[in-house]
Design a protein around this nucleic acid. Structure first.
Lengths: 243, 243
DNA sequence: CGATTTGTTGACTAATATCAAACTGTGTGG
DNA sequence: CCACACAGTTTGATATTAGTCAACAAATCG
């Protein structure tokens, strides 16, 4: 199976590639690697020489403040290229770590560089990916800045569901997602105790449930409403994923 | 005076341009406009057809949650291109508004598009700008997620000082910045009352002071320490601005 | 099976929000 | 010059949210 197809499909969601563009992408040398849970892909201060696409599994980006507290900045799912920014910013300003066993397809910066210099359309599609990443960060700022604990939780899960759906990983309102309450707390700027209580509340109200790597949105409409979720910022062009 | 020089100087901080690159940038048609305070440059839902560089004055980006609360996402200072992302994401997912009288240099998307397709080096420098923007968003997530009210305030002002210094707008630890306590509250995810109290505390301890558009960092080291500020994420290459 | 991580609970505390009022400075028109 | 309006700041009292600590239960893993 050709992993480059996955990349092309992703970038094509908004952009039309010529045959030459597609050929150039398919010609990219990919280095596929299977890694276990909690594998650091890049650490703050590193100077990576490759980017990676997540083929299978999950990762998150995080940053440790001087107080020692860790803040999770984003979660990443199959199809994402979570460290594309390292192509332009030579020093990592945060960590990127897998949160499950994962299959990663690495692309050397040198190859990517050549590609984007030669093929403006591809460059633009990749740039656009990083801009959506940026839009998600903006929404997380809103999430942390103005929403209550329960709204934050609902919003985070609504976003995740929406992105998972776009790659066909949601069925029956359920999706695999390997996250502990401690990680949710680090993503939402809450204590684990409070996360636990918020979850219990949602569970009791039959809105959503998280049980051992499985997120169930019992009532998606209520989740969206509780989080004040408007998917516009994800800039998804197509609706649901075909099968 | 040629405003394109300002743009070139900014983009050159990290990138080496050929003469052709510089010439192409200088050939960009700029539409310079003077606008008053509180002028919307782009609103959520808009489809802008131009980007703007701030030549003089200040702006901020913000987003209103469904609860009606507004979150400020970033502040922008001279030299910034706060809506560069609109070149790639056609629909605005937030507002961009001036917070002072300002001089703006608009560049049509069509002209920018032509430039980046023709000149990969320039495209890369612009892309890099948007990636720094993204890095700043990440740091704001950390700020809101893990820091106390006073640390948030200190961090915000430290960042601002650092960016202002890079364009030569800081002298004696003081810089012009038109912000009310209400706006600070919206940026920091706090109430205005609490912002007021935090500011009084800093003022009392001779750490910093904000008085009618003038930010004074009485003790820069203490501000940096209080905010846990590490400027790495700004990815500034040169230190202070030459005079 | 023991060891370790993850989830749950209760009691208590700290940080910050909310509300309402008053105060300050600045500009405006009479 | 004064009276007034207005925006921004300051204050005090009270309410709420979420954090901390500590113990325990349940699940998971080697």
């Amino acid at each position: 199976m050709h992993y480059a197809e996955m990349l092309i499909r992703r970038l094509r969601s908004d952009t039309h590639f010529s045959n030459d563009d597609a050929t150039a992408i398919k010609a990219l040398p990919l280095h596929v690697k299977e890694v276990p849970e909690e594998t650091p892909i890049a650490r703050e201060g590193d100077h990576p020489s490759a980017c990676c696409m997540i083929v299978k599994g999950f990762a998150c980006r995080s940053k440790v403040a001087d107080t020692g507290k860790r803040q999770i900045l984003s979660f990443h799912i199959p199809g994402d290229i979570p460290d594309l920014q390292s192509l332009l910013l030579k020093t990592m300003d945060h960590d990127l770590v897998t949160i499950s066993a994962a299959t990663l397809a690495f692309i050397d910066h040198s190859d990517l560089s050549r590609l984007i210099d030669a093929r403006p359309t591809v460059a633009r599609a990749l740039w656009r990916e990083t801009m959506i990443d940026s839009a998600v960060f903006r929404e997380w700022i809103v999430n942390l800045g103005v929403r209550s604990a329960s709204a934050r939780m609902a919003h985070l899960l609504a976003e995740l569901r929406q992105r998972m759906a776009a790659v066909g990983l949601v069925s029956d309102g359920e999706f695999q997602f390997p996250v502990t309450q401690a990680k949710l707390a680090e993503a939402l700027g809450l204590s684990t105790v409070h996360v636990n209580r918020v979850l219990q509340d949602f569970r009791g109200k039959r809105v959503l449930d998280i049980r051992k790597n499985l997120v169930t949105l019992t009532d998606v409409a209520k989740v969206f409403a509780a989080g004040g979720f408007d998917p516009t910022y994800l800039h998804q062009v197509n609706g649901a994923h075909p099968g």
